[in-house]
Simulated scan of single mutants.
Amino acid sequence: MQNGKTVVIGVIGADCHAVGNKIIEHALKEEGFNVVNIGVLSPQEDFINAAIETNADAILVSSLYGHGEIDCRGFREKCNEAGLKDIILYVGGNLVVGKQDWKEVEKRFLDMGFNRAYPPGTDIKLSIKDLKKDLGIEE
């Protein structure tokens, strides 16, 4: 059953990890989301353009190769400039290189304008629960 909400998903930057992206797509569709999957190796502009074209409610960014922090810098500002000031932004995966305190990593992404950031190994069910809450979908 569709919930009327559209989400754009993809893997940012030079990251080509496709399997997790497909799992996320499947899980979101099972929960009634209209999913626009832009795939792997995606620059910020592809996420933003897809969100504009589909009138998306949220953008979910994945990164597994450790350079997500670099790839995501300025993302919220670009969304704002494109007229997407209210879009929900999530990011998750192996976002930084090396062992770093997750709370510090999360804070950096929240400070960059992401609504939520998830560490490696987060169950997609948690992200979907948060997304429904943030989008006002009754459970």
Rank of each mutant, 00 (worst) to 15 (best):
I128H: 14
N3I: 09
D46V: 11
G113E: 01
D86Q: 09
G20C: 00
E139T: 07
P119C: 09
A56Q: 09
I70R: 15
W102K: 05
M1E: 11
F47P: 13
T6M: 06
N3D: 06
G66P: 01
V7K: 07
N55L: 05
F75D: 00
I24V: 14
E106D: 02
V19P: 03
S63N: 13
Y118G: 06
P43A: 08
E104Y: 05
V7Y: 11
Y65Q: 09
D46Y: 12
E53I: 03
G92Y: 11
T6A: 05
P119Q: 11
Q100C: 06
N34L: 12
C72I: 00
I137T: 05
G32D: 09
Q100F: 13
E30P: 08
A18H: 09
D86H: 14
E69A: 02
E53H: 04
P119F: 15
E31Y: 05
V8K: 01
L41E: 11
E31S: 07
E69L: 06
R108I: 03
G121M: 10
Y90S: 07
G39N: 04
A51R: 06
N21A: 11
D130Q: 03
F75C: 04
I48W: 05
E81A: 12
I24M: 14
H67K: 14
A50E: 09
V36T: 07
S62T: 06
H17K: 11
G68I: 00
D134W: 04
N94G: 12
G83S: 11
G136Y: 04
E77M: 06
G93N: 04
A14Q: 15
N49L: 11
N94R: 12
S63W: 00
E104P: 09
K132H: 04
G4A: 07
I70Y: 09
K5E: 08
I23K: 00
L64D: 04
V35E: 00
A58Q: 03
E69M: 07
G32E: 06
V35Q: 04
R116P: 15
N34C: 14
G98R: 13
I52E: 12
V36M: 06
L89V: 02
E106N: 04
N3P: 02
Y118F: 08
K78H: 07
Y118K: 02
G98S: 02
E138N: 11
A18Y: 15
K78D: 10
I70K: 15
L95K: 04
D123S: 13
Q44E: 09
V8P: 06
N55T: 08
G10D: 05
K29Y: 10
K103P: 06
H67C: 05
I52S: 10
G83W: 03
A50K: 01
F33I: 07
V91L: 09
N37M: 03
V11S: 03
I23Q: 01
M112T: 02
K125S: 10
E81N: 10
K125P: 08
L41H: 15
G98L: 00
E104W: 05
Q44R: 13
H17P: 00
E81M: 15
L131P: 00
S127W: 08
C72T: 02
P43G: 13
K133E: 12
E77G: 09
A82N: 10
